[in-house]
Design a protein around this nucleic acid. Sequence first.
DNA 1: CAAGTTCTGTAATAAACAGTACGCTTGGCG
DNA 2: CGCCAAGCGTACTGTTTATTACAGAACTTG
Lengths: 288, 288
Amino acid sequence: MALDEGATISERIRLGLGRLTPTGRKVAHILLANYPVAGLETVSELACRAQVSAPTVLRFVSRLGFASYPDFQRALRSELELQVQSPLVKARFSLESATPTEQLLNRFHQSLADNLAKTFRSVPSAEFDAVVDIFSDRRRKVLTIGGRFSDALALHLSLHLRIIRSGVSHIAGQSANWRDHLLDLGERDCLAVFDIRRYTPDLAEFAAIAASHRVGIVLFTDQWLSPIAQKASHILAAHVPVPSRWDSMVALLALVEAIVASTTERLWSTAEGRLATLETMRHVPRVG
Amino acid sequence: MALDEGATISERIRLGLGRLTPTGRKVAHILLANYPVAGLETVSELACRAQVSAPTVLRFVSRLGFASYPDFQRALRSELELQVQSPLVKARFSLESATPTEQLLNRFHQSLADNLAKTFRSVPSAEFDAVVDIFSDRRRKVLTIGGRFSDALALHLSLHLRIIRSGVSHIAGQSANWRDHLLDLGERDCLAVFDIRRYTPDLAEFAAIAASHRVGIVLFTDQWLSPIAQKASHILAAHVPVPSRWDSMVALLALVEAIVASTTERLWSTAEGRLATLETMRHVPRVG
DNA sequence: CAAGTTCTGTAATAAACAGTACGCTTGGCG
DNA sequence: CGCCAAGCGTACTGTTTATTACAGAACTTG
């Protein structure tokens, strides 16, 4: 790893520019001009771009404080990963005039917008369609279940689906009782599982059992993919990191809402009637 | 170079998803979820991330039409190079080339990003701080409750708060039983209410009763404000419209997460111990 | 239920790569 | 003018990395 942490690599290059040898400076300029791509190429490719020899490039990264060239590349990649693939939202409005709270809100918003962008960019539309297909198929029963926190999303999904179609349930309560629900499920049916990190072992076990009964598994998870991914027939992954002690479920909720919106549209001809019926029932005093 | 030009690599992956083998799909999902960084790592690193073997990764890139893995990486880099240098022109793939689903996802994402921005811009930081103050005050009990759909958020809030502090409960079940909870609440205590449109009459009634007992009401609502706003001591409003039959709770969840993040930070010195205790308890077999 | 096909991981192989030693060149200074 | 030192590139070496061959597992199909 790099000796001198804190600054981004491009900053470190700019700062070190004075201390470099003439050829080293050539490398630095090429790197800054084509940042960060040039640094992700091989040593010889970069050397060729900068019209210097390979050892010069190595001496350069060494002087920047990296133990090796692969080490340098790793740093570059992890920076790229954070720095976002959405360069449009730079919006440097964390100025000194802002109060600490405003800054916090800004940072938080930034991360969320970022997660949203990455999530929507990476979700395969074929996968999305497939899931909507399943949820729109009234012949397939749908069971939803979630982990400790993500269960709220599972509930959210089932609440909406249940309104527009029949055969939807949410599995709550003790994990020992979960598998009872599987009795009702056949090969054509579907289990929607929500599992984000600190993945729930009970859930994985349950999903495995479901999979062994040939129940289709739709997995909503985070960008690192729950272990359940191995059993899942369809996967929708959302980005969850935010500047917080907890992970964010905003992008995952966004996916659920998009799925629900699309499914509702698909089933609208029949869902409309159900909603109307529901409306009239609302005025009847509730039982209990 | 790649045989089949024209599309971006991520698009090509999405399109090819159906034609892939099960393990190949794992690789594809990891790649899309961490695009494009994951593809710039070595074969074995990527294989490890996707929990498959190295040859599987190679077969994957081969099936995508690349002659070799370095070739694939070169393509990825050159795409990255273009993308970074023209930050404005991307994400604009709501063109005629996009499939209906892609357009839907795009529109949906656009609305959500919009809601998020409006919400964070409009939330007064003083109000935000005040709510964090209340939730951080261990002497005040906190009760959460929500409407038909928004109750999932109320639950979400209580689940997190309950971990970092004591005296937090969520009100569920029949509305007739709700007011029982008020018995435990005094003047200094707090009721967190979630209510978005098609506002729930029962909730308004309940909030009114609570207010008459001088319980402080923190209201999470939509941009048009639930009628409960009149009784509320603090209001946090989020924007909810999306191109869907339902309203979106994404921005509201975002606010909740921001509140939770901030409260957690505030109480961290004691919350840390609670979390550790919880962790040790997790390994004890559950009752029932 | 069995034969065949497809898929996948293990292990061995080949290629590309980063790293290094050495000697030449250049610029500064006595 | 000549010595010294710093900088650079060439050529080589050791490692890492991609690749390929093969054998076992899983799933299909008749």
